[in-house]
């Protein structure tokens, strides 16, 4: 589903964000991406949805080669992904349902299809009762659920979440994390960046740790104990 091969990424200002990053993620996986602030987690996320291109190396996502993706193919790739951020990125002047519907309108879907799908994902994230609420009327955890529902509404093959629990309290974090697990259990690949170490330890999911732009640990390859040794 996802394959990074010897990926280097430097930003125009010269900052080297990624150094020789190689890993692959297969169908059905749930992967946690960890590392200190500035380690390059968000940069990897941006490569996955083609907001950035690798400086060298190869990035393949769901059959698309991000390295050489044409501009007009980027929307096609993004419709196969669900993208979730720490800051939710909801539109304040639209209700929860409208925010979710927005992702389908953009693809030119039919109105009745949109309504049916929006109702389905709202139920899936447990917010059917709040479909008409505006973002400011929702708690942080609820807003993130709306954002996840929006990410799901296109039936994505892969869900990319950059610190989705970053601003949430413990309860809301657990709720959102559980939601992502359910989504993964239903067959969607989930890639989640986080620096919540408790979450990483509790979950028995594959963990990739970055330091200064390099992969220093990948639980799929290393001994589990190496996590502790590495710190």
């Amino acid at each position: 589903m996802i394959r990074l091969t010897h990926v280097d990424k430097s930003y125009p200002n010269g900052a080297l964000a990624l150094r020789d990053v190689t890993f692959r993620i297969s169908r059905g996986e749930f992967v946690l991406l960890t590392g200190h602030s500035g380690a390059g987690k968000s940069t990897i996320m941006k490569l996955l949805f083609a907001e950035q291109r690798p400086t060298s190396g190869e990035v393949r996502v769901s059959g698309y080669d991000v390295t050489s993706l044409r501009r007009d193919e980027i929307p096609k790739l993004r419709r196969r992904l669900g993208i979730v951020f720490q800051d939710f990125r909801l539109l304040d002047d639209r209700t929860a349902a409208e925010n979710i519907a927005f992702a389908l309108e953009v693809t030119g879907a039919r109105r009745d299809t949109i309504n049916a799908r929006v109702a389905r994902v709202l139920a899936q994230v447990g917010l059917s009762a709040k479909s008409r609420a505006h973002p400011r009327e929702l708690s942080g955890g609820e807003q993130q659920r709306v954002a996840i529902a929006r990410a799901l509404v296109n039936d994505p093959a892969i869900l990319v979440a950059d610190e989705p629990t970053g601003t949430l309290d413990e309860r809301a974090t657990r709720g959102v994390f559980q939601l992502l697990r359910d989504i993964n259990a239903a067959g969607t690949v989930v890639v989640m960046a986080t620096h919540d170490l408790d979450l990483v330890r509790q979950a028995r999911y594959r963990t990739i740790e970055l330091r200064d732009g390099s992969v220093v640990y990948d639980s799929a390859e290393d001994e589990p104990d190496a996590v502790e040794a590495g710190r």
């Binding site: 993004r78 419709r79 993208i83 990125r89 992702a103 953009v106 030119g108």
Partner: peptide, 16 residues
């Protein structure tokens, strides 16, 4: 700008 960046994220084409 915000709305447009979100449109981009959910896969809106440039022409859209």
């Amino acid at each position: 700008a915000r709305e447009i960046s979100i449109m981009r994220l959910v896969g809106a084409t440039n022409w859209f």
